[in-house]
Design a protein around this nucleic acid. Structure first.
Length: 531
RNA sequence: GGGCCCGUGGCCUAGCCUGGAUAAGGCACUGGCCUUCUAAGCCAGUAAUCCCGGGUUCAAAUCCCGGCGGGCCCGCCA
């Protein structure tokens, strides 16, 4: 158990015992207040009786202090004891232990590779990847999949475009066909039927061509440290008969309309089969989710807000089949000041362009600060900083919040940003590197030290919360607060130059270094020993 | 028209789920701090009708209802 919980439980047990004594039947309200009031507060405002001063005093012991302040009973952990417990908890490595034990599947990105990833799509990837890291960190088994659409209207339009306009970029070729879809309707239908009938040669050639495009997308993601455990091809669910199985299982719910099959839901029709006999994306997605539900405890989809209706329908139909364990993380769009990104308006911001700018800016800064560094080291450092800055700048927003992209914000390397965090890490590292060894310190913690240690003590709870609520931004915010608290400590508490406090402070710096590193890795930020 | 999401200092966000003590950060702005472990840092200051109106409550940024503004969706597309 982490120290925070341990002390909280001690306090709660005392309160519960007292409540029983005083015959308080109302539920007890206990929460974490503004830190200036203490570590915990028992809010008795709703209680019918006033808790007597003597009873409050009797609760106190050498570990925990209770203090009445009006209707609030402020609870403070013994700072020395609490700080020492947290410090040992971290430095022993116990803070890395976790239970987890569930099998997760995260499907993210899954974009049609009709062009390079733009930053809106990248938000999907970064959320998905960070959640995967968090859940793994919590001791779970996590598999990450990219669902590759290789069948259906858009894909056939892309293939046809590449065939008709071999000299154009594939993005442009796709656009020409998709925007004049009526003109190519029969050709598209011909291709769809071949795919649907499981024409192996046709599907093979489709995949070969798509794989080249997909590689382009994966390369961008790879540079951000994002990897997949598997690519799932949509057409596989046709080839292995799962799609057929879905239609059979759903037969009792299906209604017919000129040969097309649909399910009625909320006065809407959810189509599962076209009148020409082909399946729809929805049907294949059902098949995919049945596979997910069967093989994993918690399958998670990362979807843009435009997929909400699709997912609602999916949930409904899956429930008909007895499947209810699918989770989802929705995120809002990244827009520019001119509004939604669109190729036509020319305001699309591609991930690779953002990365390039970010790395360039980092390089300029590194050159300014370390003119004597060799060329390779400069490039390497700049790349790590630039990429981390992009990741952090996207993950720090809560997913449902729309992001208005500005270059100024994206390339801000001060304050709430990755370089700030990396800088704090480097500072702590610099102290530790100047040290041969140190002994276990005393418990004469000063306020700044306690502040930092308390912040570190929150880490495991934050991790757990981020994992439970699917809010990676919580961890992002925490890591900033932690780094910021360290910078205050750094200013006020000399470590190496103060022999009297040296050992104790080294313990603190060591612990900070470990926690921050762990959190940075979990968030997918690069670790640099120096900055 | 219907459904979902967002609305917090000049700008960007956290807090809302689980209602409580002067609403918390960042950017920008103003002033200060490098002969002392990395100034991508630190300290101080200016700055908020928590979109509006009702309701519930001893207590509402937080819960409920109704508006307003912005986004997304409503296809035999994916």
């Amino acid at each position: 158990m982490n120290p925070r919980r341990f002390f909280e439980d001690l306090a709660k047990q005392k309160i519960e015992r007292l409540a029983k004594e005083l015959q308080i039947k109302d539920p007890l309200i206990i929460y974490k207040p503004n830190p200036k009031f203490g570590d915990l507060v028992w809010d008795t405002q709703k209680l019918k009786i006033d808790v007597p001063q003597e009873s409050v005093e009797k609760l106190c012991d050498e570990n925990i202090k209770f203090q009445k302040s009006g209707k609030f009973i402020n609870i403070t952990f013994n700072p020395e004891k609490y700080a020492r417990t947290v410090l040992d908890f971290i430095n022993s490595g116990d803070f890395k232990k976790n239970e987890g034990g569930l099998k997760y599947l995260i499907e993210h990105t899954s974009a049609n590779p009709t062009g390079p990833l733009h930053i809106g799509r990248a938000r999907n990837s970064i959320i998905g990847d960070t959640m995967a890291r968090i859940l793994r960190r919590l001791g779970n088994e996590v598999r990450v999949e990219y669902y590759m659409n290789d069948i259906g209207t858009q894909v056939e339009a892309l293939l046809i475009g590449m065939e008709i306009f071999p000299d154009l970029s594939y993005t442009e070729a796709y656009r020409r066909v998709y925007e004049n879809i009526e003109q190519y309707k029969s050709k598209i239908e011909e291709y769809m039927l071949r795919a649907e009938q499981g024409d192996i040669d046709f599907l093979k050639s489709t995949r070969t061509r798509l794989e080249m495009l997909l590689e382009d997308v994966l390369r961008d993601l790879y540079s951000l440290g994002i990897r997949f455990d598997g690519i799932v091809w949509e057409s596989d669910f046709i080839l292995n008969g799962d799609v057929k199985g879905v239609l059979e299982k759903l037969e009792p719910f299906l209604k017919d309309e000129n040969g097309a099959k649909y399910i009625e839901y909320n006065d809407d029709k959810i189509y599962l089969k076209r009148s020409n006999g082909t399946s729809l994306y929805f049907t294949r997605d059902i098949a995919y989710h049945i596979y997910k539900a069967k093989n994993f405890n918690v399958p998670i989809d990362v979807l843009g807000e435009d997929h909400k209706l699709h997912f609602q329908n999916l949930t409904y139909v899956l429930k008909l089949l007895g499947i209810e364990n699918i989770k989802v993380i929705f995120y809002s769009y990244v827009i520019t000041k001119e509004g939604k990104m669109s190729t036509r308006r020319g305001n699309v911001i591609y991930l690779r362009d953002l990365l390039e700018e970010s790395v360039q800016l980092a390089e300029d800064e590194v050159r300014k600060r370390h003119p004597d560094l060799d060329e390779n080291s400069i490039k390497d450092l700049a790349t790590r900083i630039g990429h981390s800055a992009v990741r952090y700048n996207i993950i720090r927003y809560s997913p449902e919040k729309p992001i208005t992209f500005t270059w100024e914000d994206a390339l801000n390397f001060e304050g709430e940003s990755a370089p700030f965090i990396m800088y704090s890490y480097a500072r702590s590292n610099s102290i530790l590197n100047k040290t041969e060894s140190f002994n276990k310190g005393d418990n004469k913690f000063v306020e700044r030290e306690i502040e930092l240690i308390k912040k570190m003590g929150d880490y495991t709870d934050i991790l757990e919360e981020a994992g439970r609520t699917y809010r990676p931004d919580r961890l992002a915010r925490y890591i900033y607060e932690l780094a910021s608290t360290f910078n205050q400590f750094y200013r006020d508490c000399p470590v190496l130059k103060d022999p009297e406090n040296r050992d104790r402070r080294l313990e603190i710096v060591k612990a900070f270094n470990m926690v921050l590193k762990d959190a940075m890795e979990t968030l997918g930020l690069e670790i640099t020993e120096k900055l």
